[in-house]
Design a protein around this nucleic acid. Sequence first.
DNA 1: TGTACATCAGTGAACGCGCGTTCACTGATGTAC
DNA 2: TGTACATCAGTGAACGCGCGTTCACTGATGTAC
Lengths: 234, 234
Amino acid sequence: MAAGAASPRERYRSQVRAEIKARAWEQIATAGASGLSLNAIAKDLGMSGPALYRYFGGRDDLITELVRDAYRSLADTFGAAADAGTGLSGLARAMRRWALEDPQRYFLVYGTPVPGYRAPDDTTATAREIMATLLDVCAAEDAAGTPGTAETDAADAERGAGPASADALETHLAEHRQWAGDHPAPPHVLRRALAYWTRLHGVLSLELAGHFTGMGFDPEVLFTAEFEGLTGTG
Amino acid sequence: MAAGAASPRERYRSQVRAEIKARAWEQIATAGASGLSLNAIAKDLGMSGPALYRYFGGRDDLITELVRDAYRSLADTFGAAADAGTGLSGLARAMRRWALEDPQRYFLVYGTPVPGYRAPDDTTATAREIMATLLDVCAAEDAAGTPGTAETDAADAERGAGPASADALETHLAEHRQWAGDHPAPPHVLRRALAYWTRLHGVLSLELAGHFTGMGFDPEVLFTAEFEGLTGTG
DNA sequence: TGTACATCAGTGAACGCGCGTTCACTGATGTAC
DNA sequence: TGTACATCAGTGAACGCGCGTTCACTGATGTAC
């Protein structure tokens, strides 16, 4: 009865739950999220369909749980990459690895939204955690003056046009920073983090959806050029 | 019988076809592409389900046609924006408008791929047309020395790290340019166009999927800062 | 202008299918005394 | 250690549903002479 000591039944339960989820992921990888079927999962596991209702409230509950897990695993991946101290480009590479590992998992979180569905509320917290990690790494590189951090500003300075809209964004972000929580990052770091984030998704979503196949070039070379920071030194 | 003169029957046919597609789009907007149902469309139109088989080979054929149309409409939008002479940022704004007009249309082309499905072959040509337009506008800005074009290079120059991987990408692109067809754009323009393209999709896919809602800032301000070229002058 | 025929849009019934979900029930596992 | 009971995993039958698709058929529209 001590906290953390699971009874045999509880252990069995969570084991079966995990197995159900594993099959669900396999199915999603094969047929997409819209093709996920409780009956098919049950069949895979050698059980009858209704048996799954002992473990999940229904199809929607199961999907919700998968979404939650996907968010969690990305947040963990990000956290580990940040701890590894490989900087922004390390974060980028980790995310790409995570995405390529199971493209449909990426799409379950960042892909086409199904009009009726709303992600579980607690994913907001995980999403914030991800952004916080990104901000941490961004701020660290900024503080260290690591090459790459100055990119957006340097680009603006180079423009004849001047950084009018860039400044506007930084001002705006300084005033609308829910997503950054109480992170102490200065406006230009907020902006840098946000830009990095969106660019990352640009390359990844196109690559994962197969829009680079048939174009001829190697996505990895593009990725490296777009997101390397330190690796290009020499 | 003169070419281009459609018989009443032919006109009626294409009119009904168009109406079917219109309802299909409505349904996709409401329930997503996976929720598209022939019977529901027929009901909407006050006909019986099997009647649709006079106009389309089946559900897959209809979807294929919608994908084709979506590609076409984006290519046209791009073409018009290029003709308007508003430069790269004009292209960006046009694409965002197009995307916001019907997010599910965007997702039908660039969203989560459904594992089994392959887009019709002729969409490749349209996709190339889109890239060609992008390259045209990119090359024009480059030739005119318009501010903004130098962004990526300026950023690299500013880096202590040096543009090693950027050069690598340009070399690579110069040697793998199927996607660019026989467009005479030099490597740094190829790279610039590709980067612009991926960044565009980054912001748009996140915005359309709703990942900015709840973050606090205004997506439009981000968009402007990321893609304006001339508009920020002054 | 009128008749005979071909074309073709649309119907209604029917097909098999797989889905999520409910329900009453069986049988094994764990718990309390 | 043994018995009585409660818990709970899993089954099998059944529900209603909407789907894509086929088929034989009706009736209107267009064409040929």
